[in-house]
Design a protein around this nucleic acid. Structure first.
Lengths: 121, 121
DNA sequence: TATGGTACATACAAAAAAGTAAGTAATGGC
DNA sequence: GCCATTACTTACTTTTTTGTATGTACCATA
């Protein structure tokens, strides 16, 4: 999230895996702690920064900003700034971002099933 | 992976998110650096520890062991030990593990498409 | 008796991710 | 002039993940 060391084994391995495997590449795109929660909240339309912050309880402004920046850089989320004071910024899913929705619905179902299997009442 | 501090904000947030969101829960299951590469390699049947190690270049024995343990604990991979010397251990996907295959194929396609979009030649 | 193969375990170090606390800019309303 | 609002920064600390290096058990074979 912050600075990474370009030539660390860690970073080189990450690059190697991402290059090698589309699947790992995809997972990395949405792999940050809060990213999926952000994306889920955007599923039904645009939200302002402050709306996201209050919908996702426990997230700090710093984390929200960092994840949104990454999602924006990765073309999954679109950011629109309105020239107003106080500032108004809206976030929404891009087309390629929306294409994740049916996939994550399945993943979510899998999770529910898995959870039921491993922790039966 | 190693010891975690039960009451750190970091850990509490992780628990909270996982409890709250099946999707994040699912992603956490396969979120480790090498997990998906391991799972992909098991897609076509059982493999021994040493086979996995040589198929996944750059992975260390420690990382392979750690990830396999987690996948086993999460019921995604099954471990079979043969009472032989030298030891022989085989790994394979469980039923719930196999149910991820169609999902990760879609994710993989998404990744390919996304990659083409963001880095067109 | 020494050696080799297999699947690990352990102690430690480096790197990355997440969290904390405080500050900033712009401007409209009081 | 002062304060409130919004969407951020920045500097720093803590926690977690990843990687390095080395050691272990077991027994068959040389």
């Amino acid at each position: 999230m912050a600075k990474i060391k370009e030539n660390s084994t860690n970073n080189l391995n990450r690059k190697y895996i991402i290059t090698d495997c589309n699947l790992t590449y995809s997972i990395c795109m949405v792999g940050g702690r809060w990213k999926l929660l952000i994306l889920c909240n955007l599923e039904n339309g645009k939200l302002r920064f402050g709306e996201l912050r209050s919908k996702i309880c426990n997230i700090t402004e710093r984390m929200l900003t960092l994840h949104l920046r990454e999602l924006e850089n990765d073309g999954i989320v679109k950011r629109t700034v309105y020239a107003e004071v106080p500032p108004k910024v809206e976030y929404e899913l891009t087309d390629i971002g929306r294409e994740l929705i049916p996939i994550w619905e399945q993943l979510s179902n899998w999770g529910e099933k898995h959870r039921a299997m491993t922790r039966p009442e």
